[in-house]
């Protein structure tokens, strides 16, 4: 490891500040992508093909292209498209574009996890609830979704952890998050230490994600 001319007293507060941006991206993405993903999942399972097909196409694009490209496209794309149509100066704010891209991308993945969970519940339960006179909404809210949440926790923890690490891509469109700061500090100080510290920061964040999911699984294992 190369220490170079490093000032830890300055670096650590700066990295904590940059971590705040990373956490903002993380939580805002979850806030919007988790509900959107559920909607997408229902769209994907719909009997109407005019709903199902567009949703499938959206998922194919989002899961089939790199997130880094989607970031650039969401940020720069609208300007150039608007320009083609004769409107100049149309543009998302940097941070907004970043969140939009992350939400669109992650909702596509979340949707498949929800769908796997929902389709794993035996159809008999749905039928039984119907016989008991429950509405579709009641069945989902009281019978299906609680079981689904339990089953999708492990794959969800995967996605959450990937999201923590993917936030490093936000720098592509100039959002100054943790990894950008670490790399800048690395060149300024000619030192690899900032990268190692960034690694520790990401690890701690993901450790906490892991702890959260373990707790949630324990809490929800009430029938065992």
């Amino acid at each position: 490891m190369n220490y170079g001319n490093l000032d830890l007293a300055k670096l650590i507060p700066n990295m904590l500040e940059a971590s705040a941006v990373t956490l903002e991206v993380f939580f805002l993405t979850l806030l919007f992508a988790l509900p959107l993903g559920l909607l997408v999942a229902f769209g994907r399972m719909s009997r109407h093909r005019f709903l199902r097909w567009p949703v499938q196409a959206y998922q194919a694009v989002m899961r089939g292209t790199p997130l880094i490209l989607q970031l650039l496209f969401v940020y720069f794309g609208p300007f150039y498209i608007a320009q083609e149509m004769g409107i100049t100066g149309f543009k998302f704010d940097r941070f907004t574009a970043c969140i939009v891209a992350f939400v669109l991308n992650y909702a596509a993945y979340f949707a498949e996890i929800y769908r796997a969970g929902i389709e794993s519940i035996p159809v008999g339960q749905m039928e039984a609830a119907k016989v008991l006179g429950m509405t579709r909404w009641q069945t989902y809210r009281r019978i299906i979704i609680p079981q689904v949440i339990k089953r999708i926790l492990p794959p969800m923890s995967n996605e959450f952890m990937t999201l923590v690490k993917d936030t490093a891509l936000a720098q592509t469109i100039g959002v100054a998050e943790l990894f950008r700061l670490a790399q800048t500090a690395q060149t300024q100080a000619f030192s690899t230490v900032p990268l190692v510290i960034a690694g520790v920061f990401y690890f701690v964040m993901n450790y906490l994600v892991g702890v959260f999911f373990n707790l949630a699984e324990k809490k929800l294992s009430y029938y065992r």
Partner: peptide
């Protein structure tokens, strides 16, 4: 604002 390369900037 920091960019990875001049072209993106």
């Amino acid at each position: 604002v920091e960019f990875k390369d001049n072209m993106t900037a």
